[in-house]
């Protein structure tokens, strides 16, 4: 089996120091629509200037390089044990090179491991065997500021008047955005999962963030709700950094899961504007970075 450590370091470098074109474009559109001379427009200007500088110097866009979350889809015959070792080695090296901040803190002793390795969930690695002969590695760097403002609701929620239907889902998602204010580095991207158990629901709310910015849910009902939630979240007027303004949310991504008859969870993962996620495809000798 091929050693992909070097390629994985490069994937992490690109993820930490450069935004995907679709995210960058959405931020540019947001800057254009904010009022000229407003604090909101100025914040977005600084954000875009920083992205440009980070790309040029290969330095992290944000110092909180987050929990590295990997989704690996592999053809039959690949050793997930070896892939895990290579990913962990790449994380250590990327930290040495200052593409990542040492972020793994033992919750009991408070000790930072210093090399970004923690238990089996740090970095988080999901494996899935797929048909075909391509290896696909997706990585997401999600910082703690936006992770902290994520929320999970159990419906019905009488305080918000939210029942077990899409109308109820709409209410709790808007509530989560209002509670987050600018804390999660607005303008954010919302990953919303409806259903599942508490664990699978949060997991799906992050996975859905891998969709392209202009990619809609294949379910027309959810696709319509995605657009509506983005528009209504922007009516809240929280704006970039919570300075006030037209752009509070850049996009909403929704997915549905099966649930138990007794449970109806809505999980909201808030992704900051520095939406760092990238894909690498290994096809024979060729390695493609999307």
């Amino acid at each position: 089996m091929r050693d992909l450590t070097e390629q994985l370091i490069e994937l992490v470098r690109r993820t930490s120091t450069d935004l995907s074109p679709d995210v960058q474009q959405t931020l540019e559109q947001a800057r254009a629509q904010e009022d000229a001379g407003s604090a909101a427009q100025s914040a977005l200007g600084t954000i875009l200037e920083n992205v440009e500088l980070s790309r040029r110097n290969s330095t992290p866009i944000c110092q909180d390089t987050g929990t590295p979350i990997f989704y690996v889809q592999h053809p039959a015959g690949w050793s997930t044990r070896k892939l895990r070792e290579q990913i962990r080695a790449a994380i250590v090296e990327a930290t040495q090179k200052s593409y990542l901040r040492p972020n793994a803190v033992d919750a009991i002793t408070d000790k930072n491991s210093g090399n970004n390795l923690g238990d089996n969930a740090f970095p988080t690695i999901h494996f899935e065997e797929i048909e075909g002969d391509e290896l696909i590695v997706d990585v997401m760097l999600k910082g703690g500021g936006c992770e902290n403002v994520g929320a999970q609701y159990s419906l019905p929620n009488s305080q918000l008047g939210a029942g077990r239907d899409l109308a109820g889902v709409r209410k709790v998602v808007l509530d989560a955005v209002q509670k987050a204010q600018g804390q999660g580095c607005a303008p954010g991207i919302l990953g919303v999962a409806i259903g599942g158990d508490r664990g699978s629901s949060f997991y799906a709310s992050k996975e859905v963030l891998f969709r392209k910015m202009d990619e809609k849910s294949p379910d027309p009902q959810l696709a319509a709700l995605e657009d509506r939630l983005t528009a209504e979240a922007n009516q809240l007027g929280i704006g970039p950094m919570g300075f006030g303004g037209k752009t509070t949310v850049l996009a909403t991504k929704m997915t549905g899961l099966h649930r138990l008859p007794a449970s109806f969870f809505v999980s909201v993962s808030y992704m900051c504007w520095a939406h760092r996620r990238r894909r690498m495809i290994v096809r024979g000798e060729e390695v493609i970075y999307e």
Binding site: T46, I47, E49, N50, C62, Q63, G182, W273
Partner: peptide
Amino acid sequence: LHAIGGAASLIAQ
């Protein structure tokens, strides 16, 4: 004082 969240490379300079 509010700095711009995520503007890490720029502020480091």
